[in-house]
Simulated assay, not measured.
Amino acid sequence: MRILVTGGSGFIGRHVVAALQDEGHEVAVVDRVPFSGPGVRAVTGELEDPAVRDEAVAAGTDAVVHLAAETSVLGSMERPALVHRVNVEVTAALLELSRERGVGAFVLASTNAVVGSFEGTFTEDVPLAPLTPYGATKAAGEMLLSGYSGAYGVRTPALRLTNVYGPGMRHKDSFIPRLMRAAADHGSVQVYGDGLQRRDLVHVHDVARAFVAAATSWPSGPVIIGSGISHTVLDLVDAAREATGAPIPFEHVPGKPGEMPAVVVDIGRARARGFEPSISLLEGVRMAWADFAPSTAS
């Protein structure tokens, strides 16, 4: 297949591009950050620009994997208009251009933030009730996909990702990279509250496989992509200590207002479509450590 990956220069995007190429697909990338890699048609620019979209969605494209987005929850609260423009208006424009050019599938990178705060196990059937502009824009994106699937027959899977980690996170500021930097620099980390908050972490290699499967064959609708196992923050510290061999001291600081005590997801729908997480937390943290270890850090 000929598949366009938006945001293909990003953390998840580069793994998706590699996974698609491994399966023999012809890949194009559009991103504001230049992409370099063998065998990839690269378009550099902002997707808000119609000319960039026009160049990216070339005739003969079979599927679009739409990863490009403003993903900061805090940033969405500070700049809601920008996030709406990038996450909703650009998605709508890409969908319409894809329809006009006969693209058969459009896959959205979504999030469980579309359902907001929820006590219990997340499934795809939990009603949409986002609590932030970011979550609202992703919910809007899912609704756009549903409309185009119903009206025009476009195949539109939406992958609701949990916390994605793995190689290529040196520029990130989420908890796993903070742990890796603390190990490399003999530093420490802060743990919010008691550290017993539970989170589902899924390795980026598994996520990339899910996007390949979604682009090539999955039906329309939301699918939760996670590991299916929730770990406490203190579990993550322990895994990082074992993976790096560093003590990684930490201090407890007051919890953040509104932080969810637990994120537990049911990945039964993904499993029914052939997805199975393959990388354990400890193995995955060891793979992430390779980017930060003093012998490889630049």
Results as ranks from 00 to 15, higher is better:
210 A>Y: 14
270 A>W: 05
253 V>A: 00
263 V>E: 03
200 D>P: 09
259 E>M: 06
280 S>L: 02
259 E>N: 04
280 S>M: 03
264 V>C: 01
274 G>E: 13
273 R>D: 02
239 A>M: 05
199 R>N: 09
212 V>M: 12
254 P>V: 03
251 E>W: 06
225 I>Y: 13
199 R>M: 13
266 D>A: 05
198 R>G: 00
223 V>G: 02
230 S>E: 11
278 S>G: 01
219 P>R: 05
240 A>W: 10
201 L>K: 07
229 I>L: 14
264 V>A: 01
253 V>Y: 00
277 P>W: 09
262 A>E: 07
235 D>M: 12
231 H>K: 04
276 E>G: 01
270 A>G: 01
228 G>Q: 07
199 R>P: 05
273 R>P: 00
257 P>G: 06
218 W>H: 15
246 A>K: 11
253 V>Q: 00
218 W>F: 15
258 G>T: 06
246 A>D: 11
207 V>Y: 09
232 T>Y: 10
276 E>I: 00
221 G>L: 02
204 V>C: 11
221 G>C: 02
265 V>W: 01
271 R>V: 13
249 P>S: 06
235 D>I: 11
276 E>W: 02
281 L>N: 03
209 R>G: 12
210 A>F: 13
200 D>Q: 09
275 F>K: 01
260 M>T: 15
237 V>D: 06
274 G>N: 12
270 A>N: 02
270 A>V: 11
240 A>V: 11
264 V>L: 04
267 I>S: 03
278 S>R: 10
259 E>V: 10
269 R>I: 13
248 I>K: 01
253 V>G: 00
266 D>I: 08
224 I>G: 05
273 R>V: 01
242 E>M: 08
204 V>Y: 06
213 A>Y: 07
266 D>E: 06
257 P>Q: 05
230 S>I: 06
214 A>T: 07
229 I>T: 15
199 R>H: 12
215 A>N: 14
278 S>H: 00
204 V>K: 03
234 L>I: 12
284 G>R: 14
255 G>N: 10
254 P>I: 06
286 R>S: 15
207 V>F: 11
205 H>I: 02
279 I>M: 07
286 R>N: 09
244 T>A: 09
255 G>M: 07
238 D>G: 11
238 D>H: 12
262 A>L: 12
258 G>E: 11
227 S>I: 13
279 I>W: 08
252 H>W: 00
277 P>Q: 09
268 G>A: 11
199 R>Q: 12
272 A>C: 15
